[in-house]
Amino acid sequence: MDQGPLAERIVAEFEGMSAQLQTAARYMLDNPSDVALLSMREQARRAGVQPATMTRLAQYLGFEGYDVVRDSYAAAVRIGYPGFAGKAGAQLRSQKLKGDRAQASEMLDSLAAQFARLARPQMLDRVVAAARRLSAARRIYCLGLRSSHPVVWHIHYVLSLVGEKSVLLDGVAGTGADAIGRATDDDVLLVASVRPYTRQTVEVAEYAAGRGVPVVAITDSEVAPLAQIAAEVILVPTQTPSFLHTMAPAFAVAEILAAVVAGHGGEQALAEIRRTDEHHAALNVHLKPRLGKK
């Protein structure tokens, strides 16, 4: 979003504002996407003012509160973003013209190119840096909602096989984010979100970062909300001929991170895996291979 929906009004009223309101207004003018995506407290922090100043600015501009301002900016972002329905229409037209086989082929070609980009040295450096930070943490809190949930769930699952270091922040009974309240700067929040960014994910990450908990983010852009607060960022492509963004590159990163972090566990991790195997065998978790007839 190049310009926010209130830009003209802010400029017109700017001279009559107090110094604090001008600081907040200048932030809104320069960062319209942040107004749509970030919490009011985080915006105030970045602007260098108190949260109450943001509320007073909204009232100065004729609104009841800052939530109304955020909603107007969020609506502008949605207009600029075609959304799932808009992208689905484009896919349907293309698929009808080219056929199902071509649709499948285009998606696979796209994924192949994206995986090749993930193997570039600069991307591998980011993955290694993230894995080292995760390995050094006392606990790893994992958060991913909507399409990003399988990404962090897989990392949590693999790490649960080699110990008790991982904590999944899920949404059961609305208590998903409660556990992050026990995190300290000895821990790490591993979080994944791609556009359109899930508000709760961003707000929990902002909360954790504000408490001094390092954030490791899997996201899709250097200017994504999570990238702005993360200590380590892994960027994954999401473009696809499908109407829904692809999560395959992010899932690949999840598999790599999980394997590398587990590998750092050494003999203790091996002992935990043996215990897990014994536990699964005792519960008859997996089907046993059938013996061939003699």
Rank of each mutant, 00 (worst) to 15 (best):
P5G: 14
P5K: 12
V11I: 11
T23K: 15
R26G: 09
L37R: 13
M40F: 00
M40H: 03
M40P: 06
A44G: 03
V49I: 07
Q50A: 13
Q59R: 15
G62S: 12
Y66S: 02
D67V: 05
V69N: 14
R70C: 04
D71E: 14
A76N: 08
Y81P: 06
Y81F: 06
F84D: 11
A85H: 12
G89L: 10
G89A: 14
Q91M: 09
D100T: 02
S105F: 09
M107N: 10
S110W: 03
Q114D: 09
Q114I: 00
F115G: 01
A116Q: 10
A130H: 04
S135K: 15
A137E: 05
R138V: 04
I140T: 03
S148F: 10
P150K: 15
V152P: 11
H154C: 00
Y157E: 11
L159R: 13
S160V: 02
G163T: 06
A173E: 13
A173H: 02
G176V: 02
A192Q: 13
V194T: 04
V194C: 08
R199F: 01
R199L: 06
V223D: 15
Q228H: 08
I229A: 00
T246G: 10
A259K: 00
V261T: 10
G263S: 09
H264A: 13
D277K: 14
L291C: 05
K293P: 02
K294W: 02
